[in-house]
Design a protein around this nucleic acid. Structure first.
Length: 224
DNA sequence: AACGAGCACAACCGCACGATC
DNA sequence: CGATCGTGCGGTTGTGCTCGT
């Protein structure tokens, strides 16, 4: 009883995809479409399981994928969405056409999580981490001293900083995003910096306020 | 130049769920 | 109505690259 595995692993290739394999899969799907993932590798002449082909297509080969690092603004939206949706990466990714759930999940685990922890925010609850007073004070001092360094080194921030600092207008922030729906989301929600009028550096303001999440609440209807 | 640590990302695994038989 | 199938999802692991020593 129980489910059969999606494929027997006998004779099937695993590990990183080669360019020839990518070409085979890409050509097959572009010419024939996707009827049944299980049949795709057989018909395309690949020694992979259907699941592996599906993953490769979704996360890497799809023509509509957006390449490049996630922007600071996209990170903000991800954090907000995560506070509402939790680890439902596919739901979060649905707000970023061209981005994959895997990509967002990886970005969360490798960068945003650390960023939040560093700022004293629990990535799970999105609330300030409970600490005794001594530790709180110590962490607070460390954060103050390291905020700039964090922004400059850890977060690949300067590029975005330039974009943001060059203008306080929402349109400029939108221009700093790639075209696509995240940009549209920002246009619809009048951008995040509308909540901090007059603040030249939204990032500095953001990290100084653990309850910054409240500022996002008005955006909820636009997202959910 | 060689090595190891840390990091980012690609890929795999196992489970859940809806559809179909 | 239960068994099976196909697919999607989230957690985890593997791999390759970069950087510091």
């Amino acid at each position: 009883m129980g489910r059969q595995p999606c494929c027997d692993n006998i004779g099937l290739k695993r590990g990183p995809w080669k360019i020839e394999e990518d070409h085979k899969l890409m050509n097959f799907i572009l010419n024939n479409g996707i009827q049944c993932w299980r049949l795709v590798p057989k018909l395309a002449g690949l020694m992979r399981c259907g699941k592996s082909c599906r993953l490769r297509w979704i996360n890497y080969l799809r023509p509509d994928l957006k390449r490049g690092a996630l922007t600071e603004a996209e990170e903000d939206i991800i954090i907000k969405l995560h506070s509402h949706l939790g680890n439902r990466w596919s739901k979060i990714a649905a707000h970023f056409p061209g981005r994959t759930d895997n990509e967002i999940k990886n970005h969360w685990n490798t960068r945003i999580k650390k960023k939040l922890k560093f700022l004293g925010i629990d990535p799970l609850t999105h609330k300030p981490i409970e600490q005794n007073d001594d530790i709180k004070q110590q962490v607070s001092v460390e954060i103050d001293e390291n905020v700039k360094e964090l922004a400059e080194k850890t977060l690949d921030y300067p590029r975005e900083q330039q974009n943001i600092q060059n203008s306080t207008s929402s349109s400029s922030l939108n221009e700093s995003l790639d075209v696509g729906s995240s940009s549209e989301i920002f246009q619809n929600s009048h951008t995040l910096d509308m909540y901090n009028p007059g603040v030249e550096d939204p990032f500095q303001n953001w990290i100084g306020s653990p309850i910054h999440w409240d500022l996002f609440d008005n955006l909820e209807d636009n997202f959910l």
